[in-house]
Design a protein around this nucleic acid. Structure first.
Length: 481
RNA sequence: GGCGGCGUAGCCGAGUGGCUCAGGCAGAGGUCUGCAAAACCUUGUACGGCGGUUCGAUUCCGCCCGCCGCCUCCA
């Protein structure tokens, strides 16, 4: 398969250093506050990338928590708590939110504060190799000593000098140098080091934690495109300067930013959508579909209307899933069950429909083309529905298996509502529908419609068909609103 | 100023040097139905502007216009 590499700016063949194994590191959050839509965009994009890679590879996915940082310290002061308490709180919020978005847990989630000793070692190594210097208790990376600096962001040193600046209290030789270690300030967390007490700069942690896990030259490093410079540029400089070897990373993957109604989402202007708000009124699947419909490298346009549209599209998938379940006479949950895992006992271990899966493979193998995958999915739904309308059900099992494959990669099919398990509600609805059926048979449509609209107001959707009357809970009620 | 990206039908958004068509949502008409819903069918002069290359460009090249991101903590 091909994937885009930020460093070369070109599509490249994915060639893992160990065939069949892919090691991927994605920069995680600084845990100083609750996650917002921008986080979701990046995390969901990489979740789909990971889900695709693991169909053919043994994938190890690592994503860190940055738990020492200016913003965490500031937040801790504000809330009169310790930085550690703040970090642990938002770490838990992050994990919970990502799970609600059906994002798979990383295989490992290293914390910056647990890697300080290795950061100190790496910094010492960088100094020893002549790429960094100590100055007033700080340690700075000497950018001029690293000739390929700027190769990820495609900028020369002269270009970078223009934007570079020196904060008050810094002791840089050159403005484009960056901090590896910051001397301790009063009332801030600090650790001992050969240069005195202090704390690490932001960039060093990812060089350390990724190579701790994978060593130099691992397969994929990812993150939002806003991290290309300076964060990832600096990670390369640190890791390669410390080891004297290259490359640090084989493929750099970066996801695009989110636009809110045409404007950049920015905390400074209050133009932010918090995920807790978004998830209160929208399903994870709709949010994931919205993300999947735009290629991961492009800017994502976001409005409330667009998520609403995705809700309707996602409902269509649920309806299709339920229809297949009815035809196959199985529990709807089994339809999108783990067919990829033989022996999981879903009862649906069959060949997925080849047409749809071929289209999925074609799309995803070309730089993780989730928009094409979504198109392939809905294309199958339309064809399958058309056949089912004519009473042809022989391919139902293959469709179900294909649907499960799609859901394994994209996770956009809403789960079967567990709201239907209330035996009392179940019984009452069945009773009402039985009465309604008798009314229909005696052509008392006024009463029949009264029952249907009354149930509708309670969030229960009644649908008559040639095969009899079906009912289900509407999305809003199923979401517990 | 530097680096990068985008401009595709009402909206979002793939894609391609010529071939029937991305896909979703919305709109219109229809089939089915007691009605509705669901589903399906039909329906849209789409490719920012101007040049160039070409037998032929939305797709390649140049210029222009417009929009956006990064260059500072940021997913």
């Amino acid at each position: 398969m091909r994937l885009h590499n930020t460093e070369t700016g070109a599509l490249e063949e994915l060639e893992p250093r160990r065939p069949g194994h892919v090691d991927i590191y994605v920069c995680g959050p600084t845990v100083y506050g609750p996650p917002h839509l921008g986080h979701a965009r990046t995390v969901v994009s990489f979740d789909m990338i990971r889900r695709w890679l693991r169909r053919r590879n043994d994938v190890t996915f690592v994503s860190n928590y940055t738990d020492v940082d200016d913003k965490i310290i500031a937040r801790a002061r504000q809330e009169e708590r310790t930085p550690e308490e703040v970090a642990r709180t938002y770490e838990a919020v992050w994990l919970d939110t990502m799970r609600r978005l059906r994002v798979l847990d990383p295989d490992k989630t290293p914390r910056a504060t647990e890697a300080i000793d290795r950061m100190v070692s790496m910094i010492a190594e960088i100094i020893a190799r002549g790429h960094a210097y100590e100055s007033g208790g700080d340690v700075y990376f000497d950018v001029s000593s690293f000739p390929t600096y700027g190769r990820l962001s495609h900028q020369g040193l002269d270009d970078l000098r223009v934007g570079a600046r020196v904060e008050p209290g810094e002791h840089k030789r050159n403005p484009e140098d960056f901090a590896l270690w910051k001397a301790a300030k009063p009332d801030e967390p600090s650790w001992d080091s050969p240069w005195g007490p202090g704390r690490p700069g932001w960039h060093i942690e990812c060089s350390v934690m990724s190579t701790d896990e994978f060593g130099m030259g691992f397969d994929i490093h990812g993150g939002g495109s806003d991290l290309v410079f300076p964060h990832h540029e600096n990670e390369i400089a640190q890791a390669e300067a410390a080891t004297g070897t290259r490359p640090f990373v084989r493929h750099w993957l970066h996801s695009g930013m989110v636009n809110l109604a045409g404007e950049k989402m920015a905390k400074s202007t209050g133009n932010v959508v918090m995920l807790s708000d978004l998830l209160a009124s929208h399903s994870a699947e709709a949010i994931r579909l919205l993300v999947a419909q735009t290629h991961y490298r492009h800017q994502l346009e976001f409005t409330e209307e667009l998520v609403e549209e995705c809700e309707r599209a996602v409902d269509r998938l649920a309806t299709f899933r339920d229809r297949l379940a009815a035809v196959l006479d199985v529990d709807p949950a089994a339809v999108t069950g783990p067919v990829l895992d033989p022996g999981a006992g879903s009862g649906l271990e069959v060949e997925p429909e080849a047409v749809a899966v071929d289209a999925l493979v074609l799309a995803m193998d070309d730089d993780f083309g989730t928009p094409g995958a979504v198109a392939a999915l809905f294309d199958m739904v339309k064809r399958a529905n058309a056949e089912l309308d004519t009473g042809r059900t022989d391919a139902a099992l293959a469709w179900a298996a294909a649907l499960a494959v799609f859901d394994e990669v994209l996770a956009v099919v809403p789960p079967v509502s567990d709201g239907n398990t209330d035996a009392l509600v179940d019984g009452l609805v069945v009773l009402l529908l039985d009465i309604r059926q008798r009314a229909r048979e005696s052509r008392d449509f006024e009463l029949a419609d009264r029952v249907r609209s009354g149930l509708g107001e309670l969030g229960i959707i009644v649908e008559d068909s040639a095969q009899g009357t079906r009912w289900r809970r509407g999305r809003r009620q199923a979401a517990g609103r």
